[in-house]
Every structure is written in structure tokens, then in C-alpha cells.
């Protein structure tokens, strides 16, 4: 702890600035990651060909 005899600590403006920067960086990172992952999952959701070919093959069995 600073003793009151010392100079007052500067309110490091950069500390407050920094918190804003990281808050918005994390927010947009998370948003991007979620969006990327969801749109790629969208593509992998197309599996109708699997059922089509499955019924096709069952002709034989």
C-alpha cells in the first residue's frame, strides 16, 4: 500500500482504456468464432444424400 507521504498514484488512464479495448476485442472474437462455427455446421447439416443412397443400396439386401 502506498503511504500517504508518497506522491498520489496517477490514475493510469491507460488502465481504464485497456479494459475497454480488451472487452470489445473479446466480444468480437467470440462473436466471430460463434458465427464461423455455426455457418460451417450449417453446411455439414446436409445429409440427405446419405438417406438417398442408403435406400438405394437396400435393393440388394
Amino acid at each position: 500500500l502506498l503511504t500517504p507521504r508518497q506522491s498520489l498514484p496517477q490514475l493510469d488512464e491507460s488502465l481504464v482504456e485497456e479494459s475497454r479495448t480488451f472487452e470489445s476485442r473479446l466480444q468480437s472474437l467470440l462473436q466471430d468464432t460463434i458465427q464461423e462455427s455455426e455457418s460451417s455446421m450449417e453446411m455439414l447439416r446436409e445429409w440427405t444424400w446419405l438417406n438417398d443412397s442408403q435406400s438405394f443400396s437396400s435393393d440388394l439386401s
Partner: peptide, 20 residues
């Protein structure tokens, strides 16, 4: 000012937790 910054930071952390 510090108190406000910390409060904002907590809110941001909580929101990221919920999204996650």
C-alpha cells in the same frame, strides 16, 4: 472512474460467460 471501469468489465465478463 476505477469503480465504473471495473463494473463495466464485470458486465462484459458476465455477458461473454453467458454467450459461451
Amino acid at each position: 472512474q476505477l469503480r465504473e471501469a471495473l463494473r463495466r468489465s464485470n458486465l462484459a465478463l458476465r455477458q461473454r460467460c453467458e454467450e459461451m
